[in-house]
Amino acid sequence: MTLLHWIGNFLRHQLDLVPLSTARWLMIGLYLIVMFWIIQLPSTETNPPDRPGTWRGDLKIWAWFAIMFQIVIYSVF
């Protein structure tokens, strides 16, 4: 048993204590963090410079959809 084995066993034991429902919420939490970060991005970074203000060109909306699908998937499975 080396120091690396000891560290590995310790971490494995601690992570094994985490309930799977908490692990699921951590994954969903990752998506929520990305979602809130994207929502607060300035519109100059998410819209085309030549036609600002059109909803179809606003990348925030499409990014938001991509994340919403993920949150639903990780909530169901």
């Binding site: 994954m27 990752l30 998506y31 990305v34 994207i38 991005l41 970074e45 998410t46 990348l59 990014a63 991509a66 994340i67 993920q70 998937i73 990780y74 499975f77």
Partner: peptide
């Protein structure tokens, strides 16, 4: 195995995009 296409790609692609 779907994780490799979902959580392994989508958050990284969105952070990469912006």
């Amino acid at each position: 195995m779907g994780n490799f296409e979902w959580i392994g790609c989508i958050p990284a692609m969105l952070v990469g995009a912006f």
